[in-house]
Computed example of a mutant assay.
Amino acid sequence: MAETDFEILDPRFKTLVKTSAVIEKLWSGGRWTEGPAYFPALKSLVFSDIPNDRLMRFDETTGQTGILMGGRDRYVNGNTVDRQGRLVSCEHGGRCITRTEHDGRLTVLADRYEGKRFNSPNDLVVKSDGSIWFTDPAYGIDSDYEGFRDEPEIDGCHVYRIDGVTGKITRVADDFKRPNGLAFSPDERKLYIADTGATHFESGERHIRGFDVRDDNSLAGGDVFAQCSNGLFDGFRLDNAGRLWCSATDGVHCLSDTGDLIGKILVPERVSNVCFGGPKNNRLFITATGSLYSVLLPTTGLRTF
């Protein structure tokens, strides 16, 4: 029954879900799905199947999923949509950030910092000023599974910003073990960044940190906002009220704007990432291990385009 798909831990979660709603499995057949990004004009969701080196497209009008792009040694991970409706992606294969133009051309926005190649950009978000913020852990060069095994050129795993006007690349955070998902608060005065250091270090990080965003786009603070109670926080998105909908091993964890775990959407596969979409932006799309799921909610996601 649908009721068993939800775990209400706090009364505040009751108004955010319909326990009669069905969690739909939309597609299966991947190896590790990631990076969901919704295109309203196309009524479609683009997402990655990283080990299979392909981008997938779910068509909301037909319910069909097919290969949008594959077999080009890109090993795309995170995706998002910029303010002009273009796909912006993190690529493990090329160790870069790319943008797909409206005519299909591919533009490399960043592949080096101070002359050294990035590790393997993982997730990204576009701010209202057009700047692109992204994380750069080493998962894509750790082995040949999600990219190409290689030695790092940069002194660690950091967080970066690409200026929306000049294209200048700035390192904005350098004290992470494995920076992963990231997202801005509704007013863009706060930036949340996940650290999944536990994948590589015993008793390592499995939390989200919250940073204050200064007027000059530098970051301050960085205290732990929330610890993951089941697995790791990977990708996450915010709703219009500033709540975080986060990936975890047992499903999607909903956190209040103060970091309290108030409820869960239980998913039978390990969740990697989420995004909001649909005509009302209240359909939560969920990438989980080898599949794509969705659930309709009575709350709306934060629009970032």
Rank of each mutant, 00 (worst) to 15 (best):
I8K: 00
I8S: 02
F285L: 02
S247W: 09
F13L: 05
G231K: 04
P121K: 08
C275W: 04
D59R: 06
V88S: 07
A226H: 03
G130L: 08
H253L: 07
I97A: 09
C90R: 08
S203Q: 14
V88N: 01
V267H: 00
H253M: 09
A21T: 01
T33F: 03
M56I: 08
E34H: 01
R171C: 13
N79K: 05
A198K: 14
D111T: 04
T289K: 12
T135L: 07
V252H: 01
D49S: 03
N52S: 15
T61F: 03
H207M: 07
R270N: 12
P121C: 06
L219G: 02
R214V: 00
D250A: 11
F118W: 10
S218Q: 14
T170C: 03
V81Y: 01
W27L: 05
P11N: 11
G263T: 08
V252R: 02
F236V: 08
E205T: 14
A198H: 06
E153G: 11
G29A: 11
E101R: 06
R149I: 06
G104K: 00
L42N: 12
E153V: 08
G70N: 05
R189K: 15
A110V: 06
G71D: 11
A21G: 12
A183E: 13
D53E: 09
L42Y: 02
H92M: 05
K25E: 15
E114W: 02
G251E: 06
G140R: 06
G30Q: 09
T196W: 00
K127W: 11
A226S: 11
G66E: 12
P36Y: 09
W32N: 04
R206T: 12
C254M: 11
D260E: 15
H92E: 02
R72N: 13
L302S: 04
V267M: 03
P51S: 08
I262T: 02
V172T: 10
D175C: 04
K127Q: 15
I141D: 01
I286F: 10
R206Y: 05
L266P: 01
P298I: 06
R237L: 03
L297D: 10
R149S: 11
F6M: 06
R283I: 15
W32V: 09
R283Q: 13
E188S: 04
F225V: 02
R206N: 15
D215A: 15
S272P: 00
R74E: 14
R243M: 15
F225N: 03
Q64V: 14
N79F: 02
H92K: 07
L238R: 00
H158P: 00
D5T: 12
N180V: 09
F236D: 08
V252K: 02
G156M: 09
S120G: 11
L284F: 11
T166R: 10
P186C: 05
I50S: 01
R105S: 15
L244N: 00
G210P: 00
R112S: 13
R95M: 08
